[in-house]
Amino acid sequence: MTEKNTKIVAFLCNWCSYGAADLAGVSRMQYPADTRVIRIPCTGRMSPKFILSALREGADAVWVSG
């Protein structure tokens, strides 16, 4: 697998990790671009359905972060 087509679906909480991702961007930090971020209002919005859906639709991995 090449680096280009690794797909990691990231479910990030609006108030925590999404903010961290924003800060990382503002700070011009370098990190791998394999993640596809989905913003959720809170990690409490997370459901096992989302993880299975993501895998089913072809994601290589799922990352849930609060």
């Binding site: 690794t6 990691i8 108030w15 925590c16 990790s17 999404y18 903010g19 961290a20 991702a21 924003d22 800060l23 990382a24 700070s27 930090m29 370098q30 990190y31 791998p32 394999d34 993640t35 993880i51 290589d60 991995a61 799922v62 990352w63 849930v64 972060s65 609060g66």
Partner: peptide, 25 residues
């Protein structure tokens, strides 16, 4: 499947975790 807990002030931790997860996957 990964789970993590990152505060909005922890940009460095965010970058570390992204790197770690990307490598593992």
């Amino acid at each position: 499947v990964h789970f993590s807990w990152i505060s909005s002030a922890e940009a460095t931790k965010f970058v570390d975790v992204v790197k770690e997860i990307s490598d593992k996957v």
